[in-house]
Design a protein around this nucleic acid. Structure first.
Lengths: 351, 351
DNA sequence: CTGAAAGCGCTTACAG
DNA sequence: CTGAAAGCGCTTACAG
């Protein structure tokens, strides 16, 4: 490997000034240089495999063209498509993403944000937001453009791109009610997250719309969006609500946990209990039975979040906004009409 | 937001020289400054929320502390845990990753590598390698430290961290042979990829070890690691190898495609056909039937790849090497002893 | 122990 | 159309 090629060295080789070379390297300013000279420079640059140093440019222009993305956990299957959407949109404008998995721990998240800011990211996309998020305050105080994705926060201080959670729950409740279910239990996610909170609200609203609110609303709170939490919650459902014929989980993993619990009790899905999930994560169609769920447009969420950021960075005066994408019901095998007396039989067995 | 704090401005506020402040900000050089002064500087820095500009430092030191990671597709479930492993290891040393999904297209990959190099990444981790990879030549020519992960390449010009594919196939064939299967068909992945190639080789070796190589080896090539390719390949198996009692797929998605095909033919797994996958991707235990497969330690692969890179960057003279992690057989419900005459019945039905 | 200065590789306002 | 120069915010060899 010979000496690293730079603007200055390239200029020396060609006998022109480095600023002339610089103008040619940027398509925006190329027209300032005579075609003849530009061509000569371009040819020589290609010959040496010259690649402008974007770090130097970033220092000079104070624009890194890097967007920081903070995720709780990339192995959660909702995030890869969001990330892909973000990247697709960023790349079109010459930006790249630095991705950081920060978990749900606040101290760790703060450390990660500090790292990203020290690296001079032009903007931040947070997939970690809670309804009342101290980290967000920290980001805002630092002055970076920030957008949340997947989850929103209550005070609406920043723009967010989210799923319409209330609509998703309406679709699910409508579906179950249409099948004839009257006694539906909701497995609720963390109430600190907009997703958990709004899905719970959406459940209550939709149940009321069907006149199913009279009986005390049946809701079991889950400690996390995990299969194990779903299994435990389903145990609670079976013990506490013997009349239940359907479970509407706030998340697919919770729904899959219900499968585990039902199987352990020798109960069949959907004959003995309908189960509906939320997210339509990959392979939700391959589990047994294939999971009826609410499809969320994660890729599009990423694209929208990145576009919001890019417009802001290009001084397009976009105000704060919440972009709410419409979800879709995906009918599969885990939901069916309640069997006459299914719940009753279960209750008898439990007694 | 007040004016951005810099070393120089901080120094001016304190009435010291900026180089003194600089020395204090770096724990490595802090000892060069008197404790009293250092403390005063640290206090003032904290007061202003001063955060050293790493882009400026990177330009000066010619070390960005950024590692570029090129993936074919983050939504393929093998990559998130690899990425998590990479990030975990990098973070411990103050590095971050720029992740780029480049697909399998060579031109696109080259574009992505150019982007990463222009951003002065200190090293590159490629999860996109093919057995004969032109992009790798390109990376080497540029002089960046490069390591491949998950996939290796034939010439061994760079270090790689991979799964022991031959061993994985041995485990799978041993398992099926022990169950009594004699007629096992392998669904092979792309022979341009080390994974596809070595699993095929491993299959042949393991079959020979069981004395099952006499009959022409039964292998169906698949165009990609996808569920649809698996479905098509299974159709071929059913048509071409009526005596087959087990399918050993080079990848879990291929195995799940077999499920689709078997179901369409009214065949049961494992009673009519055993199916074994490869990867143990998330939720492989939740499909119907739960998939017997080979577990690959993806997270560890990421950690090892990053550590190799970090040692190189710290001028530890690590030579080129191939790190091969041992896989593990995960027994689940998709494999069982062949039913006496199962294949024969199928053959009769097909006739 | 502290300061003064050079320079990493660009961009860009200012001259001519 | 081209050049000369300043400066982005650090690090570090050199003085004292």
């Amino acid at each position: 490997m010979q000496q690293k090629m730079t603007l200055k060295r390239l200029a020396a080789v060609l006998g022109v000034h480095s600023s002339t070379v610089g103008r040619v390297m940027d398509p925006q300013t190329r027209h300032m240089v005579s075609e003849e000279v530009a061509e000569r420079i371009l040819r020589e640059a290609a010959l040496h495999g010259y690649r402008p140093n974007k770090i130097a440019a970033a220092l000079r222009t104070r624009r890194s063209n890097i967007v920081g993305v903070m995720l709780p956990d990339i192995t959660n299957p909702v995030f890869p498509p969001i990330l892909l959407g973000i990247e697709d949109a960023l790349r079109k404008q010459g930006y790249v993403a630095i991705v950081a998995n920060a978990g749900e721990d606040r101290a760790q998240q703060r450390f990660v944000v500090d790292q990203l800011l020290a690296r001079q990211v032009d903007a931040l996309i947070l997939a970690t937001a809670t309804r009342d998020d101290a980290i967000l305050d920290y980001c805002l105080a630092s002055g970076v453009t920030t957008v949340t994705v997947n989850r929103g926060e209550d005070t609406r201080r920043v723009s967010s791109v989210v799923n319409d959670e209330v609509e998703g729950m309406r679709l699910a409740v409508d579906h179950l009610a249409q099948l004839g279910h009257r006694h539906i239990v909701h497995l609720a996610g963390s109430q600190d997250l907009s997703t958990g909170h709004l899905r719970r609200e959406g459940f209550m609203t939709a149940m009321a719309a069907h006149g199913l609110q009279e009986e005390a609303l049946c809701i079991v709170d889950c400690s996390s969006y995990s299969r194990e939490a779903g299994r435990l919650a389903c145990e609670t459902v079976l013990a506490r609500y013997p009349g239940a014929t359907a479970i509407l989980a706030a998340n697919d993993l919770l729904a899959l946990g219900c499968y585990d619990s039902l199987r352990a009790h020798g109960l069949r899905c959907p004959q003995d209990m309908s189960v509906v999930g939320h997210n339509d994560m990959p392979f939700a169609d391959l589990v047994d039975p294939p999971l009826t769920t609410i499809r969320i447009r994660h890729h599009e969420m990423g694209v929208q979040a990145a576009q919001l950021i890019l417009r802001r960075l290009q001084d397009d005066p976009v105000g704060e906004m919440e972009i709410r994408l419409k979800p879709e019901l995906v009918l599969r095998g885990s939901s069916a009409a309640p069997r006459a007396g299914a719940a009753g039989l279960r209750a008898a067995a439990a007694a």
